[in-house]
Nucleic acid binder design. Structure first.
Length: 478
RNA sequence: CGGGGCGUAGCGCAGUCCGGAAGCGCGCCUGCUUUGGGGGCAGGAUGUCGCAGGUUCAAAUCCUGCCGCCCCGACCA
């Protein structure tokens, strides 16, 4: 009864639950340098699945992958005033290399707008070169004060899309299109309902005209920004002199966008779906969708393992990621707990009695009764069961989210609400007022949702007229 | 960067106050037994007590300095 292996319950300490679960499930371990993490094979497989789907979606929307260098001359970052101001405090800078001090220090990229802008100024000359639609999968480094695995690591993996367009309208459409791709990824693959909307001036990307975001709710009621898409206007075009000659013979600056989604998304789905037993992984991203736990004694070992192997082959042939846990040294009970901790959506148990009867036991990570399913039918029904699992997971997350969003018009009610979830309130749009709200309540504006209805009102804190023509979502955020 | 905590076996920790043989649980290895919700018994392996210096007959323990990590906060496209 080695029950001390248990993880901290969410209700007791959500933060500790998160740390426990990601380590015990072998997703990650801490690296030797502060704020770094090692993605272990199970965690990396999750990222690879997410990456595969997103990469496909990015290509389907017309973008091509490329790769730009890790090192960026310091002077590049200084060319866009707002950009350098935003990123300077968190830069890692190389001052020595090849045994010598460098003439010009090199920044390890915190994001690649600058180096891409530099290259594009060379590549873009004509309106025929536009739109230029690129993406890169890369690691970036941001020396944040307070790292947390997946949510804010010193080095992280992401994709960053960068596009250049001949017109403002086209660039704005692109900004919005890619945010939609992120929302789709969250919804259809991570089973994560998200709000899409606009960041406030205070929360936008350093160097952007405006930033759009998808925002998700974690099981402690806090918000997590799961992906962002920025309309950069001509800010970087002007800083890096990215111009083209248009059909009207005029020399013009391009309009650019950038958009990114990182390993933070993994943190989001862990904190949105997990429970006190451990992870609950969305089937479309789960490294293992179905685990088979064979149950046998010495005398029945061979016959059970043979039937289980055959079953695994057939399930694999049905296009399902299946794993047969044939580890001899662990009891079935241990394995049940182990795979629940690791968030595998469906479990199949097969023992001597089942082999005899020609069926197996099916159990969902979301609970419910054990079912007996004929061995011949099982491979065929698993894909639809996984679909059903996805839907149930999404609906559960949505129900949780809906229950924790309230419209509030009173500052006292506001303070209460942001302790348990999101507050939909009016705001004056003034950055100083926004800052005061953060200091007084720890909550920040998360976004102005696109799909909130037009509505007039006064700022929940200062009483001045609303700046957005609709309500804004406030929450405490990771 | 401010506040707090911790560095002792792979992991979690006790031992430090009051100096005197380096321990416990889990894990790991071997064997037997068990296996339908984290089995049992027996045997076994594993240490730069964060680092450096000092005091002492003797230091995980006392003194000085340094380093690292974690948590809370400020910060965080």
């Amino acid at each position: 009864m080695a029950k001390e292996q248990g993880i901290t319950p969410q209700s007791q300490d959500f933060s500790q639950w998160y740390i426990d679960v990601i380590q015990r499930a072998e997703l990650v371990d801490y690296g030797p340098v502060r704020g770094t993490m090692v993605m272990r094979p199970y965690g990396y497989a999750l990222w690879e699945n997410l990456q595969r789907e997103l990469d496909r979606m990015i290509k389907e929307t017309g973008h091509q992958n490329a790769y730009f260098p890790l090192f960026i001359p310091m002077s590049f970052l200084q060319k866009e005033a707002e950009h350098v101001e935003g990123f300077a405090p968190e830069l890692a800078v190389v001052t020595h290399a090849g045994g010598e001090e460098l003439e010009e220090p090199l920044a390890v990229r915190p994001t690649s707008e600058t180096v891409i802008g530099y290259m594009w100024s060379k590549w873009i000359g004509s309106w025929r070169d536009l739109p230029l639609l690129m993406n890169q999968w890369a690691n970036v480094v941001r020396w944040e004060k307070r790292p947390r695995p997946f949510l804010r690591t010193t080095e992280f993996l992401w994709q960053e899309g960068h596009t250049a367009h001949a017109s403002r309208e086209e660039a704005e459409e692109e900004t919005r299109r890619m945010l939609g791709v992120y929302a789709e990824l969250a919804r259809d693959y991570a089973a994560l309902p998200v709000w899409e909307g606009m960041k406030s001036e205070k929360e936008k990307f350093a160097g952007a005209v405006y930033t759009t975001t998808i925002e998700a709710m974690m099981r402690d009621g806090k918000a997590l920004q799961a992906g962002t898409s920025h309309f950069l206007g001509q800010n970087f075009a002007k800083a890096f002199d990215i111009t083209f000659q248009d059909q009207d013979l005029e020399e013009k600056y391009v309009w650019t966008t950038s958009w990114g989604l990182s390993t933070r998304m993994i943190g989001a789905l862990i904190m949105a779906h997990g429970d006190d037993q451990g992870l609950v992984l969305p089937p479309k991203l789960a490294p293992i969708q179905v685990v088979i736990v064979p149950i046998y004694r010495k005398k029945t070992r061979e016959v059970v393992l043979e039937a289980a192997s055959e079953l695994a082959r057939e399930i694999r042939a049905a296009g399902v990621r299946v794993h047969l846990d044939d580890r001899d040294q662990y009891s079935p009970g241990y394995k049940f707990n182990d795979w629940e901790l690791k968030g595998v959506p469906l479990r199949v148990e097969i023992g001597p009695r089942d082999v005899e009867a020609g069926h197996a036991v099916l159990k969902s990570r979301l609970g419910g009764e054990k079912e007996f399913i004929g061995l011949r039918d099982l491979p065929g029904i698993l894909p639809e069961r996984l679909e059903g699992f996805h839907r149930a997971l999404y609906e559960r997350a949505q129900a949780f989210r809906d229950e924790r969003v309230e419209r509030v018009d009173d500052y006292d009610a506001f303070k209460v609400q942001v302790e348990r979830g999101f507050a939909a309130a009016f705001h004056c749009g003034d950055a100083a007022c926004e800052k005061a709200i953060q200091e007084e309540t720890k909550a920040t504006t998360r976004l102005v949702p696109f799909d909130f209805p037009a509505e007039q009102g006064v700022c929940v804190r200062c009483g001045k007229p609303s700046a957005y023509g609709k309500r804004v979502l406030f929450a405490k955020a990771y």
